[in-house]
Computed example of a mutant assay.
Amino acid sequence: MSVTIDITGLPHERIVFRPSPLAELGNALHALAEPDHHTGLHAWTTATTAALAPDLADRLLEAEFMWQSTRSDFLLPPHPRETLAEELDDLDRMDDEKFVGAALEISCSTSFYSKGLPSPLVDEWSRRRALDLAAARGPRQAAFVERMLADPTAARAWIRRLLEDCDRAFFADTWQRVRDGLATDARDKTELLRRKGLAAALAAASPALSLAEDEHGSRIVVDKLVQGRTRADAAVTLLPSVFGRPHLFTLYAPGWQPVIQYPAATHGLGHTDSTETVVLRLAALTHPVRISLCRHLARGAYSTNELADASGITAPEASRHLAVLRKAGLVVTRRRGRYVLHQLDLPVVARIGGDFLESVLR
């Protein structure tokens, strides 16, 4: 399985490596929300969490679904700027339907814009579905989605203030420490692209990135436990990240410029095997469908019906695979009101092997 970006006819100078303060802030917030995903950042997450003002900590909880399990697309800027303020200004210029669609993709475990559904800002059926899906994710998400749909302008201003307050509280100092390293990584990949070509630059960024060329054209292939494709008409942006490791995010939604966020080069970290290699190693112990389910369960808690819908299988099939994962001690289950939610037990999975954990989090 993979995500492919068609770059046929795209000049290589339109493939840009550049750091983004907004993307790195999104990664830092994710690390605070899911410290088990980032054991190498334990000292930073512990110290930063302890220093958060109670009001800011509470507000982060209200919005953490936008970066906890994955990333809202607006946190991966296609045109990185020098400062966070400039990137937030770019967000302010995004139209409401696009912004709200990106937010609801995460908070409602669905995508309105990628499935061609009408926006919940203008369509009553989509609005009811968004609210129902958000309610299944918990009261915080339900309240936030209701507020977003009722007054998107005020909700967007609230998000901007939250990100600005995070910048003042901890991220400005953090960005000062990491930005030079990220800029160096981006320059190195750009020079490699110029001297040795795109295939070499992609391989240097991540072993999960490759270039495919044949009679049908040229494609960037991102090795992930998900299937998707898009075409780059104007450019492709690659964002190096310190706080994003081990994740490899790809923005490939319709109407968005493709963006890839990759772990920047870090001393002391070993090679990460491809997903194909990891799947082969685990073939004797598990089932390919269950590996795919693990990708969803690693990012958040799902009900059986939500997991079935996200994976394209029936609810009975999902239930049978969940039973196997629970029996193996890989999944924890809890009840929230009338919903029974399942989630991957990351510390247990980590003991199986770092390659598998990095693959489901990639």
Score class of each variant (00 low, 15 high):
R160F: 02
P139A: 14
T70F: 15
L149D: 03
A85G: 03
T83N: 05
V100G: 07
G138A: 08
A142K: 12
G101F: 03
G101T: 07
I159T: 10
L131F: 03
D73Q: 13
A143Y: 01
Y113W: 11
W158K: 09
S119G: 04
D151W: 01
W125L: 10
E64D: 14
E64K: 11
A85I: 04
E124S: 11
A103V: 15
I106W: 06
S107W: 06
D73H: 13
E82T: 13
A157K: 08
E105G: 14
S114K: 13
Q68W: 08
L133I: 03
T70K: 07
D92Q: 10
A134M: 06
A102C: 14
R156L: 09
P139N: 07
R156W: 09
A142P: 01
D96F: 05
E146Q: 13
L75V: 10
E62C: 11
Y113E: 12
R140A: 14
E82Y: 01
M66S: 13
E87W: 03
S72Y: 02
R160H: 11
E146S: 14
S69G: 15
W125Y: 07
S109P: 00
E87M: 07
G101K: 04
Q141V: 12
D95W: 06
T70A: 15
M148G: 00
R156Y: 09
E87F: 05
K98G: 08
Q141I: 11
